[in-house]
């Protein structure tokens, strides 16, 4: 079996600021070629610092980062040529036109002018009709698209999106997800940080969770959902109960406050879910229900549980 070299390899990376604050503590992380990797974590967890070190904006205190085998410090030119960054803040040259600022970025990253490529990016991002507009005249969502266009102008293989849809309305957010998916189809590796867990749930192949400067988990999204996700079966009763009957106590049921619902939580990983036995015992106890539904934990709930467990 051929083991593909990771496109980004972070080894023993630490960052301690002059104030003594440790933003990153011995981070080890591999990003696979062509994947969408979501980095989740609460505010101040170290997400942006990690991205900033990889992109060359912040100096690491110790450790190494390789981008497609190129050391980001010793071989910074080759490493940075591969990387595009869309930062969290909407920092743009307000008085430049969209076309000028995107073309500038391409030149800055060492690529000769290619109007056809810039045109394609602007069209893909629905910016073509704004190409001659000054950035100051654009809406927040459009500015965000300009930032993405700038990051893509030099045809990077790796794209960092730091909170790409912060402050963007729902419709635009879904458009952006589509853009990210299209990029992945062209072979671009995407690393995104987000507060919108739905975003990671919708798009990511793998999820990493960072908390207090440490990577506490890296997992396939589906596997993470399967491993840590719990399912709940909610039974809506025909007659309300005052308490869970003793005959059903072994199932660990919860009764809703109004007594109209019985909630059964089970492990999706378990060999047996216990649902068959529960339904049989309910029948034996003469408890009838008029409807039932199951609910899978969202990535958000998993994430909240993970982070709170570490506190």
């Amino acid at each position: 079996m051929i083991v593909m070299q990771p496109i980004i390899s972070v080894s023993n990376l630490s960052k301690t600021y002059a104030s003594g604050f440790s933003a990153l503590k011995n981070i080890n992380l591999d990003i696979r070629r062509g994947e969408i990797f979501a980095l989740l974590g609460p505010n101040g967890a170290g997400k942006t610092t990690l991205i900033s070190v990889i992109c060359g904006i912040v100096n690491p205190t110790s450790g190494t980062v390789l981008a497609d085998g190129h050391d980001i410090v010793r071989d910074y030119r080759a490493a940075r040529t591969l990387i595009g960054l869309v930062p969290q803040e909407l920092t743009t040259d307000a008085f430049e036109t969209v076309w000028a600022t995107v073309s500038f970025s391409r030149g800055l990253f060492g690529k000769p002018a290619n109007p056809a490529h810039i045109e394609k990016i602007l069209k893909d991002l629905s910016l073509w009709d704004k190409k001659d507009n000054k950035i100051i005249t654009l809406s927040g969502g459009m500015k965000r698209r300009v930032m993405i266009a700038k990051a893509l102008s030099h045809e990077p293989q790796i794209l960092f999106l730091d909170e790409p849809t912060a402050g963007v309305d729902v419709e635009l957010r879904r458009d952006m997800w589509e853009v990210v998916r299209l990029l992945r189809e062209t072979g671009v590796t995407i690393i995104l940080t987000t507060h919108y867990i739905e975003e990671a749930e919708q798009m990511a192949d793998r999820v990493g969770v960072i908390s207090h400067g440490e990577i506490i988990l890296v997992e396939e999204k589906a596997e993470l959902m399967r491993k840590l996700g719990r399912k709940q079966l909610t039974l809506q009763l025909q007659q309300p109960l005052e308490q869970v009957p003793p005959a059903l106590s072994s199932h660990g049921l919860e009764l809703s406050e109004d007594g109209n619902e019985l909630i059964y939580t089970y492990d999706t990983q378990g060999e047996r879910t216990g649902i068959t036995a529960l339904l049989k015992d309910l029948n034996d106890a003469g408890i009838r229900f008029r409807d039932l539904q199951t609910k899978q934990s969202s990535l958000e709930e998993i994430f909240v549980n993970l982070v709170s467990e570490r506190r």
Partner: peptide, 12 residues
Amino acid sequence: VGTIYELLSAPV
């Protein structure tokens, strides 16, 4: 304005 991020992350 913060656009220095681009300069610092560029291969220059």
